[in-house]
Design a protein around this nucleic acid. Sequence first.
DNA 1: AATGCGTAGTACCGTACGGTACGGTTCTAC
DNA 2: GTAGAACCGTACCGTACGGTACTACGCATT
Lengths: 215, 215
Amino acid sequence: MNEQAPINLEYSTVENAPSAREQEVLSVVLDLMVEEGDGFSMASVAKRASCSKETLYRWYGDRDGLLTSTVQWQASKVAMPKLDDANLTLEAFSDTLNEFASSWLSVLTSDVSIALNRLAVAHAGNNKSSLGQIVLENGPYAMRTRLLPIFLKGQKAGLIDVRGDEAFRLFFGLVIADAQIRALLGDDKKPTKTEIKKFAQSAVEQFLKLCGSKN
Amino acid sequence: MNEQAPINLEYSTVENAPSAREQEVLSVVLDLMVEEGDGFSMASVAKRASCSKETLYRWYGDRDGLLTSTVQWQASKVAMPKLDDANLTLEAFSDTLNEFASSWLSVLTSDVSIALNRLAVAHAGNNKSSLGQIVLENGPYAMRTRLLPIFLKGQKAGLIDVRGDEAFRLFFGLVIADAQIRALLGDDKKPTKTEIKKFAQSAVEQFLKLCGSKN
DNA sequence: AATGCGTAGTACCGTACGGTACGGTTCTAC
DNA sequence: GTAGAACCGTACCGTACGGTACTACGCATT
């Protein structure tokens, strides 16, 4: 999914990590999602992955299970970014936020993330599966979980002054703004690398201006 | 699946306001969208609207035509907010933005809006229809078109100092933040009326703090 | 060599749904 | 009053797809 993973329990144990062959299958599913959205059939997966439908059903139970495994696998692939350490300068704090924001925007506007989020949004609408919840937990919630400690460090270092949940909402808004929903709706004007850099930098500046405890 | 709809010309012209009977049908479609997402069938529409499927196909050509008409009808219902007039005080400007923000957040987190956006996002993924474009134009783009004149007036009155497109992105982010995507993904923690008020007020404050030309 | 497991490939089944056809009824215009 | 259109209700058709069953084959262990 668009973001990283506070690791999925089913895959957090060693023996549940997908094998190489399974990863081939899941990778095919991701490709098909990007190409065709939710419309791809089990047969198309089997054909492109050179496996039988029976195998798909034995491994994943049903279509929803396959989708769920794919989403969780993708979530598990995003690496956890390392935080910065003890004595924190405004410079380092700002840089960390900046890098985080850039990476976040890049991921959210990537083809895979868009396809995954579209799928999750669609499934959240047909009360058919829990993909919406899964993406929600591995997307916005995970980002929040990751950012809060950073904000906390910034606050302890006296660099910002704001409650954590407000800080997250503010940071999300400044960084992402309308980029994600526009991408999901099919806006073809996707931000370029340089625009992303610019957005991120601007967002961090604004964030610090609003939350900075300089005054 | 089906390619082309023999689009009813009466609905493609300007004076295409749906009749009362048609509004009954479209209203049923909206209800079913909220209840079942994209999953409802033409038969279910016909049954609940007490009309025949043949009528649906005669009026709308195909399923996509029905969805398109519904989306456009819903879009046409959103009233244009009136701008404020000539000599502009900071107070009035701020109030206008505040009301706009509240209303915007309310709409975006309403059941109907969520259902429509889910549908549009899903269809933007299955390159099957142009619903994504339609919602994009009647959603973010329309909001932008509506806000830009307001920003311009504020700028001419010396209340803010920022380029229009940047102002829109900033305002969107501050007001909406993660509310819409969370709602689309099925987050059950929808903002209450009072939270919306608070978010809007806070967003406008922050907007003015960042764009205010007082310094 | 024989046995057995896992899987590819494919044929098959049931169902749901988009779209059409048609008989019967109501509304409208002349 | 009558013709014709619109419309309701329903039966029907074709197809696509989820899911299952079955066969054949590769490969390992014995």
